[in-house]
Structures are given as C-alpha cells and as structure tokens.
Amino acid sequence: MPGHQQIFRPRHINYLFGLICGDLGIGVSVGWWTGNHNRHHAHPNTEGADPEVMGVLAHSGNRARADRGIRRLIFRRQTWLFFPMVLLKAGGLHFASIWAVARWATTQ
C-alpha cells in the first residue's frame, strides 16, 4: 500500500499513487488512512490503542470471558462472523474517511 512507502522509491510518487488508487479509486482518503494505519502499527492489536481493533472481537481469553450478552455471543462465534464483520468494517472505513475529509474541509 502507498502508506507504507514501498511501491516506488520517491515518496511523492507513492503519495500520488495513493491519491489515485485510494481517494479516487476506492474512496478512502490516503491521508486519513496513513495516519490511522500508523497508529495501528504503533499499537498492533492492542485493545483501546489500535484503531484497527474492532470492539466486537475478543483478542484475549480474559476479554471473551468478561463480557456478557450479545458481545459474549459474538465472541463465541467470531470465527464465523469475522468476514461479514470485515465487510462492515470496510464500510466504516469509507464513512470515517469521508467524515475526516468533510471535517477538514469545514475548517479550511
């Protein structure tokens, strides 16, 4: 991905590629995605610190046993629910990206 700066040697070409593929191609702001993904790399799979960790997945046995109700049901079935939830997460990424760009545009 262009956010890793590993496709082309010049950084500005990677950024341009990200604008074309990300912003125009799939509708996710490359600026927003890069910041979000860098926070993910700073705290990979750490609940509460990694923005990529979905709040409805248990990443530890303690968390899976701690919750009750619908979350516990989801935790028990998260293997089967993972791919449908990833699709929902993709929609959420689009929404968050658009929201971030809209907020930025209103401050300019």
Rank of each mutant, 00 (worst) to 15 (best):
M1R: 14
H4C: 15
F8A: 05
P10E: 03
R11E: 10
H12D: 09
I13W: 13
N14W: 06
L16W: 13
G18Q: 03
L19R: 15
L19T: 09
I20G: 02
C21W: 13
C21K: 13
G22N: 07
G22Q: 05
G22A: 01
D23M: 04
L24V: 09
L24A: 08
G25D: 05
I26H: 10
G27T: 02
G27L: 02
G27H: 05
S29N: 11
S29G: 01
S29Q: 06
V30H: 14
W33I: 01
W33G: 01
T34G: 03
T34L: 06
N36P: 00
N38Y: 12
N38K: 15
H40A: 01
A42H: 12
A42L: 10
N45I: 02
N45D: 15
T46E: 15
T46M: 12
A49G: 01
A49L: 15
D50L: 00
P51F: 09
P51L: 06
E52I: 01
E52P: 00
E52N: 10
V53G: 02
V53Y: 08
M54T: 03
M54L: 11
L57N: 09
L57C: 04
A58Q: 07
H59N: 14
H59Q: 12
S60K: 07
S60M: 02
G61S: 10
G61C: 04
N62D: 11
R65P: 00
R65S: 06
D67I: 03
R71N: 08
R72K: 15
L73T: 13
I74T: 05
F75D: 06
F75Y: 15
F75A: 01
R76E: 11
T79M: 11
W80E: 12
W80V: 07
F82V: 04
F82A: 10
F83Y: 14
M85Y: 12
V86H: 09
L88N: 06
L88P: 00
A90G: 03
A90H: 10
G91R: 14
G92R: 11
G92V: 01
G92W: 09
H94P: 00
F95I: 14
A96H: 09
S97F: 05
I98E: 13
I98F: 09
A100E: 08
V101K: 09
A102D: 12
A102P: 00
R103V: 05
W104L: 15
A105T: 07
T106A: 13
